[in-house]
Design a protein around this nucleic acid. Sequence first.
DNA 1: AAGAATGTCAACCGCGTAAGA
DNA 2: CTCTTACGCGGTTGACATTCT
Length: 248
Amino acid sequence: MGRAPCCDRAAVKRGPWSPEEDEALRSYVQRHGSGGSWITLPKKAGLKRCGKSCRLRWLNYLRPDIRHGGFTDEEDAIIISLYSQLGSKWSLIASQLGGRTDNDVKNHWNTKLKKRLAAAAAAVTSTPSPLPLSPLPAPAPMVTHASLFPPLAIPTVKTETYTCDDFLAPVALWDPFAGGMCVPDAADGSTSASAASSASNWSTDNGVAAAGEGFLLDFCAVSDLGAAYQLQLPGGYFYPLDPSLSLV
DNA sequence: AAGAATGTCAACCGCGTAAGA
DNA sequence: CTCTTACGCGGTTGACATTCT
């Protein structure tokens, strides 16, 4: 038994939006806003679309402050850094990149950054190490510095506004039993490892990331051995973040 | 040139949860 | 307090584009 659909699928149009539909939605939202209810908006705007579909189209495509494509090296570095701390909290990550949508960030990660990091991690780990890798040294806590991401509240159509402090506060801890970096849950002190997505980079076994699954974690540990093992990202960024900046 | 493989991204699905009745 | 409704989010899908063989 699945959940009841949010709208009558037979009565609503699905699939790609036409320019006419875009214009109808854009002009309605610009004149009236969402009117407090996306569910009733399509009818008012004369659209044969599900309210959720309208909301998504507006947030991900029609909003005037949207930027598409062309992620900069700086944005890449921010995404990588925040992903390492937050996991797949795409809306949070996107909120720190002005004009980016969670969908865009998510797609960019899945199609480009994940592969790029996997390739980089493979290159790093395949290089014979002059330093002993076992026992695995505890990496420096992935702490944050306010100057890295100055508090900012990005106004969006969404109801929430976040500041960096809201989600950078929990310092990631090295958890040898969980085998990785874990962020304590505000509620019960447990870790957020279980909340990570199916493409999780948080959970591993014995602290050694499985190939292709925990490359990020693997990379954190290796890169901490010294500057020679740090991955320099395009634009002069390092992953993890430059330790000199990792001061609370 | 054609078909296959791969990449990209818009859109959908369904779950969790906040808010209101 | 419980139930219902709608919103927001992350995961997934599928269509189209591009690259490879």
